[in-house]
Design a protein around this nucleic acid. Sequence first.
DNA 1: GTGGTCTAGACCACG
DNA 2: GTGGTCTAGACCACC
Lengths: 129, 129, 129, 129
Amino acid sequence: MIIQLDMSSTTPIYVQLRNQIVTGIGRGELKVGERLPTVRQLAIDAGVNTMTVNKTYQILRAEGFIEIDRRNGAKVCPIQDLSNQYREKLEDELELISAEARLKGLEKEDFLKLCEEKYGQMNPDTQLA
Amino acid sequence: MIIQLDMSSTTPIYVQLRNQIVTGIGRGELKVGERLPTVRQLAIDAGVNTMTVNKTYQILRAEGFIEIDRRNGAKVCPIQDLSNQYREKLEDELELISAEARLKGLEKEDFLKLCEEKYGQMNPDTQLA
Amino acid sequence: MIIQLDMSSTTPIYVQLRNQIVTGIGRGELKVGERLPTVRQLAIDAGVNTMTVNKTYQILRAEGFIEIDRRNGAKVCPIQDLSNQYREKLEDELELISAEARLKGLEKEDFLKLCEEKYGQMNPDTQLA
Amino acid sequence: MIIQLDMSSTTPIYVQLRNQIVTGIGRGELKVGERLPTVRQLAIDAGVNTMTVNKTYQILRAEGFIEIDRRNGAKVCPIQDLSNQYREKLEDELELISAEARLKGLEKEDFLKLCEEKYGQMNPDTQLA
DNA sequence: GTGGTCTAGACCACG
DNA sequence: GTGGTCTAGACCACC
């Protein structure tokens, strides 16, 4: 998995890291049960502070995407059950994105085609919990 | 249009404001050509500083969602042409959202149904440029 | 002479008006000695307040581009002698424009070609004082 | 780099700041990759509010003249590619300036000499992107 | 009356 | 320590 950070972005580095790891898992570049690099290693590879990576891992853990074991480091979790909290967040995001797409002139069928295309890039074989 | 702000969120108020106005326009609660509240009025209604509202309006203007006329205040713009820059942003967002949905156990069919439902809530009669 | 105003521009209307009239005189669309429309007429044509047009005319008069006679209205002045004040303003503007052009990757010869082209569009027969 | 502000000018301070920094970069007083003063420091030096400087930096960033890195503050960007938007802005400015120059009695030859002189003061060794 | 600008000072997020 | 955000209140430019 290659990490690409934009240091001059307004998006905080730990969020960029978190997003790329989530996308990587979704795509299947990181498989369920696979170990993530250690905080220190990823910090070196990505050229950032260990505190930043640590913050990213803590967030991923809180979100249920990874498990952290003091002895074995971090590893990818299986697919979780849909939580109400997540569902609400997703709906809010989709509503905003839909509004923007509509106002930017993207027709419904083109929008849905894009949604399907993007979801289709995800790994269908990701292991269940 | 009712504005609902979360003062304890890490999302800046001016972004929350921006998002709610975009959603409002998308839904058709604010029609094309309709005037937005004055900076001062919205500041009072939302309980925030005028500069915060001003920043929101400037962003909406830069994004092409509203026009600001020195004489009459701000009003909603017609639908714009799809820009490459926006398209890229949309694709990035959908990729991340898809990954999250996949990992949270949302099946493709359900995801697409939700996308369609959300886009369907947008106003289909929004005037074109 | 056709006046094109952008009401949603950040440039004040009276400045837009002033700039377009100066450009019009430069190009020869308005000849030396020719009468400008009355304040009232231009206000109607351009769809703006008479105060705005009045302000524009006062500025043009102060800059020496037009003369205002209470009985005959405003008319275009002949070419003026170079003032130090104007010279300084021009140099400042050109310095800034040159810096921007340089940093935007415009080569010296292309920049000068553009300068020549633009000056070349001006009317060479404009009457002297 | 010395900043010279005219507090009684109608040109907003943040624009004056922006213009002087652009000119400074063009002249080579600020080199590509060099760090700009921190927002706070420049605010103190120039005797203005930090928000004013912040606004200036945000504009310079949006225009592509500088990059802002959360870790290291702001630094000068390499030369960018010519955009159509900038090209149009430049042409408009040059047309107006040419008209003024013509009407103020500046002959073509003298005008072009001045353009060349000003562009010539820019740093020819500015690094490319 | 409208938006645009600015200040002084505060607090927070980030790394 | 850096930039980002926000406030409360003021003044100005514009129309």
